[in-house]
């Protein structure tokens, strides 16, 4: 038992590092969309390798802790939640890479007016804030902050639905922009998934701390 606590502390530190790396990747992807800076794109792709390596390390740590220490109660919930947060973070890293790769393939900038109407900036910022809240909630064991993420995801979903029509209409009026608009459409879909995964992480943090399972329970999430 005496070695369990150091092992859990190490696991917590590694997951926090992973969260910060994914945040950095996503933040860079956002900058790349705004600036079309291809050097940033290469940096994101490079970071993906480190995130993948961390994912494997955290997986192994979870497996070892379960096998060696038989954690129970809050410790077991912590290890299970870290394992699932780890999976979501790796996917969020992949989404950031996908967004960056779209920028690499772009032949022209996105239409600024369309981006404004589609509230793409707001969507990026909300996604970034969701991940920051997840890091805050995880680091400070704060489920109230985790619950904010559920509300933020509603905003992300709303912007996603709105953008469908706007991009479709813009493409009809400007057929020469269809290819570029499709990239924007794809980025928005990635952001929507990014929001969902942030929500998954919030559920896991609440599961760890409060022993409540909030998966697939929209109304329950609204309760403090």
């Amino acid at each position: 038992m005496s070695n369990l606590l150091p092992a859990l502390t190490q696991l917590r530190e590694n997951l926090t590092t992973m969260m910060e790396m994914v945040k950095s990747m996503f933040s860079s992807a956002y900058t790349a969309v705004k600036t079309n800076d291809l050097t940033i794109v290469e940096d994101i792709i490079h970071k993906e390798n480190r995130v993948n390596a961390l994912e494997l390390l955290i997986d192994a740590e979870c497996e070892n802790i379960i096998a060696l220490y038989n954690p129970v109660a809050v410790d077991l919930r912590f290890v299970l939640s870290v394992s699932r947060i780890n999976y979501n973070l790796e996917r969020m890293g992949d989404l950031s890479v996908s967004i960056a790769k779209y920028i690499k393939q772009l032949k022209e900038s996105f239409d600024p007016e369309l981006m404004k109407q589609a509230r793409t900036d707001e969507m990026f910022q909300t996604c970034l804030s969701m991940l920051e809240n997840a890091i805050d909630a995880f680091s400070n064991q704060d489920t109230a902050v985790a619950r904010k993420i559920f509300y933020q995801d509603e905003l992300v979903d709303e912007i996603n639905i709105l953008s469908n029509t706007l991009i479709a209409e813009h493409s009809q009026k400007n057929p020469e922009k269809i290819r570029t608009n499709l990239f924007l459409f794809s980025i928005i879909k990635k952001l929507e998934r990014f929001g969902d995964m942030s929500e998954n992480i919030a559920e896991e943090i609440i599961f760890h701390i409060e022993a409540q399972v909030l998966k697939h329970t929209k109304p329950a999430k609204q309760k403090p």
Partner: peptide, 17 residues
């Protein structure tokens, strides 16, 4: 009791704290 004990004392015992 082993997944979500209601008393802190229980939790501290079963988790080895």
């Amino acid at each position: 009791l082993f997944t979500n004990p209601q008393k802190e004392l229980t939790q501290n015992y079963i988790t080895g704290r």
